[in-house]
């Protein structure tokens, strides 16, 4: 990969996605060794800059960097001087002055990762910016599907729920369509405005119809914290229409898998019996996440493998 930063899936070429997935595949094995470490990024410094709460993504990046022998520093806004009125730019410049090589950023503002690239010398990896993109999540979703299904081309991928506020939905949509999958978006029309049909996707508000013949179903969390004004009447009504239940799964392909970027809200978008069933690959996604992030870090920093 020739690029310095990973900001969005939208800007990636198909061959870059393939290269990243191939690299990630080769890293899967490292995490299964008794000694889970390679020297690829020895001497490199990676900083996790998390301005939004995260457990999964930050730990995943941290473990990925450590397994590549990089030095990692975690910075989250709760313990930062951001609250003392320091700007994002100043905060980042101060950290960068310690000679960092790569910054992983999560921020509530869309475009925050791109903003960093306008003044940073380090590589920048977007770990989720507002409602824009979350590229490594899409890559790990793709790797999970690849490992299970052997291909992405021709797969029917259904993404369900709060599309409007989901950076995962955006990144997944771009990635799966670029790789030849058929993407269907489903959710209440207030969380899936009509202009989403300008994407190369099918919009189907009726979940029962949307999941017909699906290979992959990606369920999303309702991002209540980002919602201004009532987007739907009640959680009860939302559950009725958009919760994935064993009954609804009957319409999919028999070997369809269920994914979720987490954190899941049991009983809202997923019934517990689906979440805990053999169809659910949610924990596999987490496992693949480490390999994908190892791949991204090593490709951007150009470490020899």
């Amino acid at each position: 990969m020739k690029r310095k930063h990973l900001i969005s899936i939208e800007e990636l070429e198909t061959h870059e996605i393939k290269e990243t997935l191939e690299t990630a595949k080769s890293f899967l094995e490292i995490s299964k060794r008794p000694i889970k470490k390679v020297p690829t990024l020895r001497g490199k410094t990676v900083v996790n800059l998390f301005f939004e709460p995260s457990t999964r993504t930050m730990s995943s990046f941290e473990i990925a960097a450590k397994r590549l022998s990089a030095d990692v520093m975690n910075f989250s806004s709760a313990s930062s001087s951001v609250r003392k009125g320091e700007t994002l730019k100043d905060t980042v410049l101060n950290l960068e002055a310690m000679n960092t090589d790569l910054l992983v950023i999560r921020h509530s503002a869309s475009g925050a990762a791109k903003f960093l690239t306008t003044f940073c010398k380090s590589s920048v990896v977007n770990a989720g910016d507002g409602t824009h993109e979350h590229p490594t999540q899409a890559l790990l979703d793709a790797l999970t599907v690849l490992e299970r299904k052997g291909r992405l081309n021709g797969m029917k991928v259904v993404i369900v729920g709060d599309i409007l506020h989901s950076r995962v939905a955006r990144s997944d949509t771009f990635l799966f369509t670029k790789m030849g999958s058929k993407v269907v978006l489903s959710g209440p029309s207030s969380l899936l405005p009509s202009y989403f049909s300008s994407l190369p996707v099918k919009v189907e508000y009726n979940l029962d119809k949307a999941v017909e013949g699906a290979d992959v179903i990606i369920m999303l969390r309702l991002q209540l914290e980002r919602m201004v004004g009532g987007f739907f009447p009640t959680l009860r009504e939302y559950r009725e229409r958009y919760r994935l239940t064993p009954w609804r799964l009957r319409a999919t392909k028999p070997d369809a898998i269920v994914m979720h970027p987490g954190p899941i809200n049991r009983g809202i978008e997923l019934s517990s019996d689906v979440a805990d069933s053999g169809r659910s690959v949610i924990l596999e996604q987490v496992e693949k996440g480490v390999a994908v992030r190892m791949a991204v870090l090593s490709l951007l920093l150009g470490g020899a493998r």
Binding site: T131, H132, R170, P193, Y195
Partner: peptide, 11 residues
């Protein structure tokens, strides 16, 4: 508010 800005994640 449009397709274009929704892609950018801008409210």
């Amino acid at each position: 508010e449009s397709y274009f800005t929704a892609k950018l994640g801008l409210r």
